[in-house]
Design a protein around this nucleic acid. Structure first.
Lengths: 244, 244
DNA sequence: AAGATCAATATGTCTTTACAAAGCCCGATG
DNA sequence: CATCGGGCTTTGTAAAGACATATTGATCTT
């Protein structure tokens, strides 16, 4: 493999994580190419003065990310061709900001409402509970991209229209000490209604990509139910699947 | 936690896997409910006469599936409320068969063609390479559900119309010794063309949910490029995301 | 020369042990 | 009474050792 690897034992970064990071970097920038075999776990362990379980843990990280493949009796190989970023639990705002697409939000509505049956079910709340309803239009490079409807149980986070215009919802969650952990998501498609078509600047009946999501925090508490719809001509969900 | 757990040491099923399975079952059928704390790793290990790393490995499996959350100094809790099955690297046929929806395939076309630029790029082949082109209509309970177009490089698998009518493509891959490992996928939406609308029994211009996928095998070889489109009124992609 | 067997190699599974760090509760102290 | 601090609990990280099992290739046998 002849790859420079170094472990800093004085660092507070876990050893297995240092190794995983360096291997991932090597794969991503091409020093390790698809099909290359990496050193055996025993060799790596000896070379870096680590225990084999530590090396295994590092390799396991990359296997579960789909970058490496292990085969017993054979060795561990680099598998990745090219890959897109997996669907992650980030907000659309964060995604677009990362891609430098000048995202902005226009808050169309922000008020307290009683949860209807569907919303209450999604958030596991008693029907009629008070929730904050939020409706936004997302713009990308001044073009309308998505309509985002969110329902947030009372007491989860302090929301105001000003902050929402320049920050993603998830950023405000983080500032309120809400740690998102897991989300159930359903992706589908449907035709645009008249008001939606007007907001998004498309024709009535145009195809929209839809996403419904319920997000849960650390404690398993439902903290957000969302219904988003995107212009089908400017948005996709990219993901990389790994077979287990 | 008072949950009946038993480990069969004579089984060839790994111990950590047995434990993970039993915990997952308990969560899925409600014996463990969201928010419940499971026994500490040390307790579990002692109770089942296992080593703590073995218990950890089992718990780790479920954490990475999003069923459990660990917090240092606190313990491990059940997090999932209700969840759908994550998007997995299985074929639509398998999905439907599992749900008992009587899937059948109608092979609309099966022939060798020269790969155009887009297909060649997706499969990392030289432009003009020979590939097998396959077009199918998927029916669910006798209702048209999806149009599936696939391009498979020559020599990957033996395909014939008869087998394809009653088996999923991925099943035929398995029989040819092709082990799928990873796939890049893009989900979007668009309007139905006239021929598509006719095949699917919807109106021209109706919204369709689309999925583009390139699948790779063990060795990192691209073995399939697919363009599927689904009736938006009868199909969704469900997924559970875990924040890392 | 072809097939079967065996040895070498690499990952897979499991145990025991040890210490570190984070969170929580409770008691001591100002 | 409030706050700080310490100790307990629990998960996080790491080591070294042992045996199991799949794969490959070389050797032996027929």
């Amino acid at each position: 493999m002849q790859l420079e690897l170094s472990i800093d034992r004085s660092s507070r970064v876990p050893l297995y994580f240092q190794l995983a990071q360096q291997l991932e970097d090597a794969i991503r920038d091409g020093r390790l190419r698809p099909g290359d075999r990496i050193d055996t776990e025993t060799e790596l362990a000896q070379r870096l003065s680590l225990g084999r379980p530590t090396v295994r843990q590092a390799v396991q990280e990359l296997v579960s990310k789909g970058l490496l493949v292990r085969r017993r009796g054979v060795g561990t190989q680099v598998v990745a061709a090219q890959f897109s970023r997996p669907i992650e639990l980030t907000s659309l705002f964060d995604d677009l900001a990362a891609a430098d697409h000048r995202p902005t939000s226009q808050v169309l509505g922000l008020r307290s409402v009683d949860a209807d049956a569907g919303v209450a079910l999604a958030l596991s709340l008693p029907a009629g509970s008070t929730v904050t309803y939020l409706e936004r239009l997302r713009l990308q490079s001044d073009e309308p991209l998505a309509i985002m409807r969110n329902w947030i149980p009372a007491g989860v986070a302090d929301l105001d229209a000003d902050s929402l215009a320049s920050n993603g919802l998830y950023e405000l969650f983080r500032r309120s000490g809400v740690h998102l952990r897991i989300a159930d998501q359903r992706i589908g498609a449907r035709a645009a209604t008249r008001p939606e078509a007007r907001l998004l600047g498309v024709k009535f009946g145009s195809p929209l990509l839809t996403m419904e999501r319920t997000a849960f925090d650390d404690a398993g508490r439902a903290v957000e139910y969302a219904q988003h719809c995107y212009r089908a001509d400017s948005y996709f969900f990219d993901t990389t699947l790994v077979c287990r």
